[in-house]
Write a protein that binds this DNA or RNA. Structure first.
Length: 265
DNA sequence: AGATTCGGCGT
DNA sequence: ACGCCGAATCT
């Protein structure tokens, strides 16, 4: 069988793509697409591919069937109406369009070739991809520096203030990166955010940093912190309530005025 | 056992 | 209509 394995320019060097036509059955004529990693492992779906490449390549606009990046295929974010019941009903994290910027050049990350199993009959198995996390770039949070939220008039919104106890770890000790790092951690992972629990990370983060935690010294959240936060939420809700009330009064006033003018005209 | 192939579920 | 993946079948 002369299967053509073509290079796939959209993926890191060494990755091959193959298309196999189904030749019998109900689905005869349809085709299946496979990819092969540089080490020869076969991949048969986009999720599987994504699990392997991890943050190395953004497959957001990668079309598995054609093997090309489709610029127009931005995140299929359903233009869901605010307060759509569906958005609230589903569990998990809110579906905000806040994909973080990630590295596009994958080739510096080597694909794992072997994995040593711990036992006597030490056959080298192809690693079970599920267990191994892909490497993350160290200090990637620094790329978030300078990103600011702004309102419709392009005025930069006031940035959040961080509680005193939080201290960053790493080459950029600014509060700005710290805020981004923590916000990202909360956004991306459902695991507890503890900060860097190893003291060694503070001395030499380049070696000891735990990349699955934000660039932040370990911290503890006290009941006091929680009460403060609850208070802030309450105040924010009050402000919002007042603003909405004022707005609706203003609208009502505007309507009646328009009606009166209509009559006199 | 591993590779190949098609079915069929879920969206 | 199609992506994804289970599992029957093939080597």
């Amino acid at each position: 069988m002369e299967k053509k394995r073509a290079d796939c320019p959209a993926l890191p060097p060494g990755w091959k793509k193959e298309e196999v036509i189904r030749k019998s059955g109900l689905s005869a004529g349809k085709s299946d697409v496979y990819y092969y990693s540089p080490s020869g492992k076969k991949f048969r779906s986009k999720p599987q591919l994504a699990r392997c490449l991890g943050n190395a390549v953004d497959l957001g606009c990668f079309d598995f069937r054609t093997g090309k990046m489709m610029p127009g295929k931005l995140q299929k974010n359903k233009q869901r109406l605010r307060h759509d019941p569906l958005s609230l009903a589903k569990g998990g994290k809110p579906d905000l369009n806040t994909a973080l910027p990630i590295r596009q050049t994958a080739s510096i990350f080597k694909q794992p070739v072997t994995k040593v199993t711990s036992h006597p009959s030490n056959k080298v198995k192809t690693d079970s991809q599920r267990g191994t996390e892909q490497p993350r770039q160290l200090f990637w949070e620094r790329r978030l520096k300078g990103l600011r939220a702004s309102d419709v008039a392009e005025d930069v919104l006031q940035t959040m203030e961080l509680p005193k106890g939080l201290q960053s770890v790493g080459p950029d000790s600014g509060d700005e990166t710290l805020l981004s790092a923590i916000a990202s951690a909360l956004h991306m992972s459902s695991a507890p955010i503890t900060g860097q629990t190893s003291v060694a990370a503070e001395k030499n983060p380049a070696i000891w940093l735990n990349p699955s935690q934000p660039l932040c010294k370990a911290f503890t959240v006290t009941d006091e912190h929680i009460r403060e936060q609850e208070l802030k939420v309450h105040q924010a809700r009050r402000s919002l309530e007042e603003a909405l009330m004022a707005d609706s009064l203003a609208r009502a006033a505007e309507n009646t005025r328009a009606m009166l003018e209509g009559k006199t005209a």
